[in-house]
């Protein structure tokens, strides 16, 4: 008798669960993204960034055309695919945003503090995002090629890896809590498994991106900032070491994968 009841219960569960539960495939938004990719509004930010690159601005009334993103002054083509990297002139590992911030300060005289103390999508930090859109678009389709041979890059990678597993905050989350296994979701959102190269590349090569749901262009710094917000930590400082370390960790694991920049997200 008991066995029969059990079987009936299982039957009911299946009948309810099967037609209603969504599989991972049904809840992935690849087709939607493909449709959006043709008219990705990130292009509007790219246009603004292209204009900003050649516009004389700031207390020094200079353009950014002498900015060295790692491939020599003024070279934008392919530069983002090789960032973050170690820069001898600053003695630091810098990602695209911290490097652009350095150029804005040294060439144009726009103080970094204004950007670090600012807000995303506003003021000079907003302009920086448009510059990011411009620069990353010139690495679209290029393979990620981050050089981790410098000891400071290796150190940042090691720190980034530790941070990835660092459980802290009000809900005990680390990056790995959500991004440590294949095929998982939060609500309907697919989560790449960043412990694998493929999963890391899924994230790194698709951000910065335009978010259709809020009509905003988000840089990688912005993306990480919101990850930490949802992780319930304190607020990460713009372009701080933790953001650079995690960026090096993700970028280096993405080596060889093709940049899809700028991405488009729902």
């Amino acid at each position: 008798m008991k066995r029969k009841l059990m079987a009936a219960a299982i039957g009911v569960t299946a009948a309810f669960a099967a037609p209603l539960a969504f599989t991972s495939e049904e809840l992935n938004f690849d087709a939607y993204r493909q449709m959006l990719a043709d008219g990705n509004p990130a292009e509007l930010f790219e246009m603004e960034g292209e204009e900003l690159w050649v516009t004389a601005r700031g207390p020094k009334n200079a353009t950014l055309e002498q900015c060295d993103l790692g491939l020599g002054p003024g070279v934008v083509e392919g530069a983002a695919a090789q960032l973050p990297r170690y820069f001898a002139d600053t003695g630091k590992v810098q990602d695209l945003e911290s490097r652009l911030m350095h150029c804005m300060e040294t060439l144009q005289g726009i103080p970094s503090g204004e950007i670090i103390g600012g807000k995303f999508r506003q003021g000079e930090r907003g302009k920086l995002a448009s510059l990011v859109a411009y620069v990353v678009t010139h690495s679209k389709g290029k393979p990620i090629a981050v050089d981790v041979s410098h000891p400071k890059m290796q150190d940042m990678y090691a720190m980034g890896e530790k941070v990835f597993f660092y459980r802290t905050g009000a809900m005990d989350f680390s990056c790995a809590s959500c991004h440590g296994e294949d095929g998982k979701r939060i609500r309907a959102t697919h989560l790449p498994n960043i412990t694998t190269n493929k999963g890391a590349a899924e994230g790194w090569t698709s951000w910065p991106a335009y978010r259709v749901s809020n009509s905003q262009f988000w840089t990688f710094q912005h993306r990480l900032w919101d990850c930490f917000r949802q992780q319930r930590t304190a607020e990460p400082v713009f372009a701080s070491d933790v953001t650079i370390a995690l960026s090096v960790f993700l970028a280096a694991k993405s080596n060889g994968y093709e940049a899809q920049w700028p991405g488009v997200k729902r």
Partner: peptide, 14 residues
């Protein structure tokens, strides 16, 4: 050092 307290999210969370 890479974080700051904002609103109810204090540094002891780190």
């Amino acid at each position: 050092t890479s974080f700051k307290a904002t609103g109810i999210a204090s540094l002891d969370r780190q």
